[in-house]
Every structure is written in C-alpha cells, then in structure tokens.
Simulated assay, not measured.
Amino acid sequence: MMFGHHLGNLDSYDDWLLDHDVVLISVDYRLAPEHPDPYPIEDCYAGLLWVAAHADELGVDPDRIVIAGQSAGAGLAAGTALLARDRQGPTLLAQILVSPMLDDRDSTVSTMQIDGVGLADRQMTRFGWNAYLGPRRATADVSVYAAPARATDLSGLPPTYLDCGSAEVFRDETVAYASGLWAAAVDAELHVWPGAFHGFTSMMPGAAVSRRATSALADWTSRLLGAPDPVAPQG
C-alpha cells in the first residue's frame, strides 16, 4: 500500500496477511515525483511477470495469482491488471481494490465533498496526482494504466473485489469503476461502508465497521480460493 504515489514503503503493510495458505509478495515500486508515471506501473507489471516466471520456486500456482492493493496501490493494481490483459501477460485469478485511487481528473462529487476534511482529502490526492503525472494531470495525455478510471473497455478483467468508505474522497470513482466492470460483464463485488473514511480498517481496526469490512473481504477471499468460510469476528 502506498498513499498518493509518493508516501509509504515496502514494509508499510507487512501485517496485511490473509488467513489462507498463500504466498504474499510485495512489489517495492519506485515512488513519484522522482519516478513519475510510467515507472511505478511498469515496476508493478515487472513484478507480476517475475512472480509468474518463478512460480515453481516460490511455491505459487501460476493459475491462481491474485493482485491486491489499497489507495494508490489499488490504483496500480487495477492498472497492472489492464496491462496484463492488453499485453497478454499472466492471467490473474482476481484483483482486490481497496479504496482505489483511480481518477486524476478531480471531478467527482466525493472529491469536492472531502476537501479539507481528514487525512486523505481533495488537496492531498491532487498533490499525489501532480507528483505522479506532472503537468499531464487532468489532460488527454494520461494513459488508462496510470488512471484506470479513464478506461472505456473493462472487458476481460478478472473477478474483482472493491470497497471504500462513504465518507472518503475515492468513493465515487470506486463506485463508477465497479459499474464499468459490471457493464463489461466482469464479476465484481462492491462494498461502500457507511460513515467510513479512507484507510479506516488500518487506522481503526477494532471499530465495528472495520471488523465488518475485514470479514466481508475474508469471506470473498474464501469463496474465491474455495476455502472454508472464515469465522466472523466477535463483538
């Protein structure tokens, strides 16, 4: 997970472990503004290619690779899935997009509502997009891999889990992306958690809404992987 393409590091989410027999691999992609688009997305795609090529030695089933991310990391995960489709790269079993940062154009209702409110607001995300895209932000010269909300063809993408908070800046672009996936006949599950802000499951993991969100993702993952249903958290 990285925020705004310019904050975070490889160890930011070492404790984000799934309760399954999986190999969890993080890509230490280069950060903006020193390394703007397309460096981060190409780093992520290179990581995917490496995992697929080294599946045997990693103990990974190459037919069961799931790509996941949160915030800017989720935007990069979505862009990597588009790259894998368009370059005929490794086939993904699924993608998990948690509060994804998808749209550089700063034009949704939620970006205008969450302005000067909380940690991840309109000004902070605009700063992140400027660092990532420079003067190209909000122009026609931005690829769908950098800003997946710009993609007009979402067909051929893997089953997708998306969630966000109702009180976060990325709410509307997440909902719109889910709608685009459904329109393209892609299996997608969307959750918009009432009253939740950006990063709520990480910042307040014990909150009731955070436990519900974590449980919903665990349930979806269990169904995806054919594992027994997880035990719902108590309290």
Rank of each mutant, 00 (worst) to 15 (best):
F3C: 15
H5C: 14
D11H: 14
D19L: 01
H20Q: 14
D21N: 11
Y29S: 00
L31D: 01
P40M: 05
E42S: 12
A52E: 02
E57L: 11
G59T: 10
R64S: 04
I67V: 13
A68F: 03
G73E: 03
A77V: 04
A81P: 11
L83D: 00
D86N: 05
G89D: 11
G89S: 06
P90E: 04
T91H: 14
L92A: 11
Q95P: 04
Q95V: 02
L97I: 03
P100D: 07
D104Y: 03
V109W: 12
S110M: 09
I114Q: 07
G116E: 06
V117Y: 15
G118I: 11
L119G: 13
Q123R: 12
G134F: 00
R136Y: 05
A138G: 15
V142E: 05
V144F: 04
A147I: 12
A149C: 10
A149W: 07
R150N: 12
L157S: 06
P159S: 08
P159A: 08
L162G: 08
D163K: 12
S166I: 00
A167M: 13
V169N: 02
V169A: 01
R171T: 02
V175F: 01
G180A: 03
A184T: 03
A184C: 04
A188F: 04
A188Y: 03
V192K: 02
P194R: 09
G195Y: 03
F200S: 10
F200A: 10
S210H: 03
S210P: 04
R211Q: 14
T221D: 00
P228V: 09
P228T: 10
V231D: 09
